[in-house]
Each structure stands twice: as C-alpha cells, then as structure tokens.
Design a protein around this nucleic acid. Sequence first.
DNA 1: AGTTATTAGCTATAATTCATAACTATTATT
DNA 2: AATAATAGTTATGAATTATAGCTAATAACT
Lengths: 157, 157
Amino acid sequence: MVKTKKVSTQDQAATGRLDSSLRGIIGYTMKRATNILQADAAQVLEEFGLRITTFSALVVICDHPDVTQSQIAAALNMERSNTVLIIDALEQAGLIGRHRVPTDRRSYALRATLEGMKIRNAAVRALAEREEVILHDLTREERAALLALLGKIASRS
Amino acid sequence: MVKTKKVSTQDQAATGRLDSSLRGIIGYTMKRATNILQADAAQVLEEFGLRITTFSALVVICDHPDVTQSQIAAALNMERSNTVLIIDALEQAGLIGRHRVPTDRRSYALRATLEGMKIRNAAVRALAEREEVILHDLTREERAALLALLGKIASRS
DNA sequence: AGTTATTAGCTATAATTCATAACTATTATT
DNA sequence: AATAATAGTTATGAATTATAGCTAATAACT
C-alpha cells in the first residue's frame, strides 16, 4: 500500500509536501486523518464480519435494547432508509433480532443476541487495541486531549 | 456534591446519546467531526464556485506552479483518473491553465491564472475565518493542539 | 539502434456511499 | 370519521471513489 514513489521533480525535497498549505486547514487534515483511521477500523472489523456501519448499529443496539431503527438512524446521523439493509445484515448474521412491540406494531424493538453481544465486545476491544497501536506516537494524554477536542466539535450533531 | 446515580439504559436512551460508547472511539468521533467541518467547508467554497476537491487542487497548483496532474493526485491522495475532471473544471473556470512542457510532451504543466490566485486567496481566507467561527468554543491553543495532533496522524499518508 | 517497460493523461465504468421520494401499515390528532 | 404523522420499506438518484484499459510519449535495457 505504501508507495515509495521516486520523486522526479527538482524542488520537492526543498518544499516538502505539495499540500503543505492545505495541512494548515483543520478540516483538511482531519479528513486525511479520518481516512487513515477509517481504513484501519474497516480492516479490523472485517475480521468480525462487520462493516463500520453495521458495527456502529450493533453497538447502539447492545447498549440500548429495544431501540428502533429510526432511533438508530438519528443516533448515527443517517437516513432511516439506509438503516434497513444494515439491520438486515445484523439480523441475518444472527447478531440481533427484530422483535415486535405490542404497543406499536409499526416499529421493531431491536435486541442483540448473545452472539451479538460477544461479537460487539470483541470488536470494541480489537478496535481499541488497534487505535492504541496506530496512535502509538501520541501519548495517552494526547489521545485523551484529541478525543475531547473532537468530541466538542462532534457534539454539534 | 456530585450525584453518581446509576441510570438505566432505557433512561439513557430517553435523555443521553444513543452512541455514547461509540464516542469513546477516536475514529468514530473524528468522522463525525469531519462531517461537520466538511459540510461547512463545502458551503463556504460554494460561494467561490469551488468544491472541496477543486479547491484543494487549486491551492496545490497555486503553491507549486508547473505541477502535473499525477503529482496532484499523489499529493491529494486520489486516483490519477479522478483528477482529470477536477482540472477540467478549474481550467474551464479560467482559474488555471494547462501548459505543455517541451521536455515531456505527455504531461501538462499546470499554472494558476491571476484570477485563480485571487480566488484561492479569498477562499483560503474565508475558510480560515469560517473555521474560527465554527471552532469558536476551542481556544486558539486548543485549535493549534488539535491541528498538531491531527497532523501527526495524517502525516502517514 | 530496436525492443520493452513505464509514465501521463484520459475515458468508461464499476462499486460505494448517501440522499430523496414514494409506498404500506400502523398510530396519533383533530 | 377524517386527517395527519410515524416506522419500516423499496426503488432510485446523485455524488464519490476505485478499477481497467487505452493512446501517446518517454525511459530503460540489451
């Protein structure tokens, strides 16, 4: 994956990266950092048969039994319609179940299975470990500070 | 005195966030933060007739006259094929020009026009101002720290 | 030299992700 | 009872990103 491209132009070594002034923009650099973490997370989750979206939904369901698909959509900032296939996948994998709720027959009460709980726990642990590895050049305090700062921004949605 | 009352999951679902345990994952929270900043940036750049990708390419071209499309692709971490339409858009907007280079007739030497330079400067300034606004609840030091931490992660690509 | 390999830009297209609209069935509101 | 609103679903569109292959030009190699 890592390209060791031979730099043919003259002044590249002097100027460094071609996007150096973009790197001063928080949004730009954050996007690049996100891409790296997302690719890594996807790789980790693949070993559990999960994608990032299915994993996220699984966590919400485990943490909040009897949650509905609409609530998941709102929590994960996605469209209701796009939750359907995600929940389908989790159900077909035997990780969650759609349960009818007698008081409202429009919605499903989603609940994780025992297997779903186990997968969730293992995946969360694996992700945390992987983040430790990939962020090894940040101290524990720096990682905490980073998360706090990101949390402030992300708290707007 | 601090009350440490234990809340049931039902109550948490009613009051708190449903994705609270996901928010402890840096990659997840960073993704959410990125979405906010990206949407904001897209809105700002729209006023200049730019999209995020065209803006990014424009900045690289302004900073590095006679850069090639392949170099832009490498710098912005995108596929060569996807640069074509981006450069087309910039050229048709009169912001850059494709210039032939006598020593290598395969590639173009991309150079910004005067108008391109002006748009770039205005867009960069507008973006910076907008980031100040949207990140107003972070101190200058916090924003600097955030950028530094993100830069460490993003430096891997 | 001549052959081969590599590179730059380009086109077309596939795969993904994400958003929108409309439908059915239920439930809530008036 | 009539109407509106909601949950899940389906189909589809738009936008982004990735992949494969092509031509022309250059580089590398024997």
